[in-house]
Amino acid sequence: MTVMSTMPDDNRADALRRSLIYTVIGVSLVLALLAPAFVSSYRIFQITTIIVDAIALLGLNILTGYNGQISIGHSAFYAIGAYTVAILTVKFGVPYWIAIPAAGLTSYIFGFLFGLPALRLGGAYLALATFALAVATPQLLKYKLVDTWTGGTLGMSVKKPDVPAWLPINQDQFLYYLCLLIAVGMFIVGRNLVRGRVGDAMMAVRDQPIASAAMGIDNSLLKTKTFGVSAMYTGVAGALGAIVAQYVAPDSFTFMLSISFMVGIVIGGAGTVSGAIYGAIFIGLVPDLASQISKAVPWALYGCCLIACVFLMPTGIHGVISLLAGKILPGLRTKQ
């Protein structure tokens, strides 16, 4: 929570902090733009995946971090996005610039609809209901009435978008820039959403539902809309994820995916925008490293990290970084 700055000192610290943050963001963006020139195409694929995950995590973070609705069913919305793009491009030949927004819209609608019964549930119950959603998703995708559309158990292949002729880059690099562009756009929108009036309302509903209702916020509508927006983010991520993987299949969208998202936001920092990025890097890199030891290790490690995180750094990596930055440069410390 930021308190209105009244002292000139605070203003200077704020300005300093803001310029530092912008510098960091600017440098990272420049690095991200130049990356394809310097790293191998496997690394580009890996970074693309992390960018896509970051969008999904931002979506879940808006719902869980800012609005306090716990979902471990976001793999379902990710799947909806992925399948929307796959079906539209493969079966109908729709171009990508329509299919990706359409995936976002479809996910928004499903998210909004699921948000309606979810209103009745708080905390762990919502988690369990969304858990049921996540477990049911692969079965629904395999169902024989829809398998002409979804390709059943086998799923279907998705093509990468073609590179416009005037661009001197290959398909992987184009996809990387596309994901980066969409991610930057969605992060800017997401940041403005959670920092603005709507974000304040989301947090008010999370922390003081009665007071927020008394102040004229329509709690139910806000919560269902938040569910929708969150699902939309995750759906767009799913759409991009399907294109990056060039493949959709029911068993890629199990509840383990949802749990990874949850791990990502808790470790990255719940209720922060940048936490989504840290979380995506964590879930993008750690399991790969850990699974070299044993199949069971990533999950054990996830579990231990989660519990350790709750006890040792409940604000996640974001919190640790702010704390360290404040220690190194005391002028930057957030005024509480």
Binding site: M262, A300, Y302, G303, C304, C305, L306, I307, V310
Partner: peptide
Amino acid sequence: TVFLGLFMI
């Protein structure tokens, strides 16, 4: 989160 961690462990 703790319950989930426990679940995975």
